[in-house]
Measured scan of single mutants.
Amino acid sequence: DEVEIEDFQYDEDSETYFYPCPCGDNFSITKEDLENGEDVATCPSCSLIIKVIYD
């Protein structure tokens, strides 16, 4: 799936974006990952991944 970065929750302390996963955990991707060109957020509890859409 693809999710807009605006739909993520941002945690300023950890500089990490979170998005709810269907399994009950959260996908996460850090601001640093995005700045380095990464665009895939992973869920630590299951095998799902999502593509992050940002400009």
Score class of each variant (00 low, 15 high):
1 D>K: 15
1 D>S: 15
2 E>F: 15
2 E>L: 15
2 E>D: 15
2 E>I: 15
2 E>Q: 15
2 E>W: 15
3 V>K: 02
3 V>G: 01
3 V>I: 13
4 E>Y: 09
5 I>N: 01
5 I>Q: 02
5 I>P: 01
5 I>E: 00
5 I>A: 02
5 I>G: 00
6 E>A: 11
6 E>S: 07
6 E>P: 11
6 E>F: 08
7 D>Y: 10
7 D>K: 15
7 D>H: 14
7 D>M: 14
7 D>S: 11
8 F>W: 02
8 F>R: 00
8 F>V: 01
9 Q>P: 01
9 Q>V: 06
9 Q>T: 07
9 Q>C: 04
9 Q>H: 03
9 Q>N: 06
9 Q>Y: 04
10 Y>H: 11
10 Y>W: 10
10 Y>K: 12
10 Y>S: 07
11 D>Y: 09
11 D>R: 10
11 D>L: 14
11 D>Q: 15
13 D>Q: 13
13 D>N: 15
13 D>L: 05
13 D>T: 08
13 D>G: 14
13 D>R: 12
14 S>L: 13
14 S>G: 08
14 S>R: 13
14 S>Q: 15
15 E>A: 15
15 E>C: 15
15 E>R: 14
15 E>L: 04
16 T>Q: 14
16 T>C: 04
16 T>K: 13
16 T>A: 06
17 Y>T: 01
17 Y>H: 05
17 Y>D: 00
18 F>Q: 12
18 F>K: 07
18 F>W: 11
18 F>D: 05
18 F>S: 09
18 F>E: 08
18 F>P: 00
19 Y>V: 09
19 Y>L: 09
19 Y>M: 09
19 Y>N: 10
20 P>Q: 02
20 P>W: 01
20 P>E: 10
20 P>A: 05
20 P>N: 15
21 C>N: 01
21 C>G: 00
22 P>E: 15
22 P>R: 06
22 P>G: 07
22 P>S: 12
23 C>G: 11
23 C>M: 02
23 C>Q: 05
24 G>N: 15
24 G>C: 05
25 D>L: 09
26 N>F: 12
26 N>H: 15
26 N>G: 11
26 N>D: 09
26 N>W: 04
27 F>H: 01
27 F>Y: 08
27 F>D: 01
27 F>G: 12
27 F>M: 10
28 S>R: 14
29 I>V: 07
29 I>M: 06
29 I>N: 06
29 I>R: 10
31 K>P: 05
31 K>D: 02
32 E>G: 09
32 E>A: 12
32 E>L: 07
33 D>V: 11
33 D>R: 13
33 D>W: 09
34 L>G: 09
34 L>C: 06
34 L>V: 12
35 E>A: 04
36 N>G: 13
36 N>K: 13
37 G>D: 10
37 G>A: 14
37 G>W: 04
37 G>R: 09
38 E>K: 10
38 E>I: 05
38 E>G: 08
38 E>D: 03
38 E>P: 13
39 D>Y: 04
39 D>H: 07
39 D>Q: 08
40 V>E: 04
40 V>R: 12
40 V>H: 01
40 V>A: 05
42 T>C: 09
42 T>M: 02
42 T>K: 13
42 T>Y: 08
43 C>L: 00
43 C>G: 00
43 C>T: 00
43 C>S: 01
43 C>P: 00
44 P>D: 01
44 P>F: 05
44 P>C: 02
44 P>T: 08
45 S>P: 06
45 S>E: 11
45 S>R: 07
45 S>Q: 08
46 C>S: 03
46 C>K: 00
46 C>Q: 01
46 C>N: 01
46 C>A: 00
47 S>T: 12
47 S>C: 14
47 S>N: 12
48 L>F: 04
48 L>E: 13
48 L>Y: 02
48 L>Q: 11
48 L>M: 10
48 L>C: 04
48 L>A: 10
49 I>W: 10
49 I>C: 05
49 I>Q: 04
49 I>R: 11
49 I>P: 07
49 I>E: 13
49 I>G: 08
50 I>T: 07
50 I>R: 15
51 K>G: 07
51 K>D: 08
51 K>Y: 08
51 K>W: 10
52 V>M: 11
52 V>H: 03
52 V>W: 01
52 V>Y: 03
52 V>T: 05
53 I>F: 06
53 I>C: 04
53 I>R: 08
54 Y>I: 09
54 Y>K: 14
54 Y>R: 13
54 Y>H: 14
55 D>K: 01
55 D>M: 02
55 D>Y: 11
55 D>C: 10
